[in-house]
Amino acid sequence: MRTSVQEMIAQSKGKKNKKFMEKMIPVILFLIASVSVLTTIGIVVTLVIETITFFTRVSVADFLFGTTWLPFSNKQELFGIWPLIIGTLKVTLIAVIVAVPIGIASAIYLSEYASETVRRIVKPVLEVLAGVPTIVYGFFALTFVTPLLQSVFPEIKIFNAISPGIVVGIMIIPMIASLSEDAMSSVPKQIREGALAMGSTKFEVAWKITVPAALSGIIASIVLAVSRAIGETMIVSLAGGSTPKFNGDFTDSIQTMTAYIVQVSKGDAGYGTTIYYSIYAVGFTLFIFTMLMNILAGYVSKRFREEY
């Protein structure tokens, strides 16, 4: 027996179940998509609430303007955030000094000079470099870079800001290189060829045409990389040390915001102690730093984009 098309349509329309499903699915998927929004809300609410609890015990002024961080002291605990911020900035500064020139130079080489074959080999290598877990970099900093530095400059201590800074720099090179390369590759070929036809050398094209045209993308990539460096945890925990200091010495042990959170989590600061709440206050400060950087990166790449 054959069913006519009309009957089949009628049958299909009769299936209430199916219709209901079609209507429910967007709702379910919307709920799933809102998990990411809930995560952000969760992060902000968690940090704010626990930080407020922290500020009922330690005054905001002491936290924001204090220059001594001594949470484990028996006599007088001091929670002045600046030593941790200084530690973070020391590592970030060194990382930027290492990564920005190398990252941008690699990007220029890949987008302007390299042949297709070279690019096909180098880009995956950079991806591997970006995929290496940070714990591995930390181990490398502690067992290779620090002893190497010490053999050249004996005054460098076993924990210092330079070794983790260099290795964080190595970690963010792929980020700067590949994002900057993307920005340079999107500069139209005609402009480049126009300059070459006028007799420019490749270096002149790169330096006077491509880099200025891609500048917004390059700067955005640097800002994003700085944000990564500020939030980096394992390298500084292993090789940076755990003595927060308010000075400009790079050769001595430091502590970053992230390393402090790790130090407290590793030990057994009981739930409800001031030290327990302090990791949220530090985490909140860290969150604000990275958030500002990310917003800045978005703003730079939008505001200063050259449109062709």
């Binding site: 940090l47 500020i230 939030g231 980096e232 992230t258 959170i261 949220y280 985490g283 958030m291 990310n294």
Partner: peptide, 25 residues
Amino acid sequence: SFIRINIANLAGVPSIVFGLLGLTI
């Protein structure tokens, strides 16, 4: 567009902050 921006920003949050979220929640 809020969800999209939110996802982009979430990707830039340091992993240790996710740890704090996990610890609390």
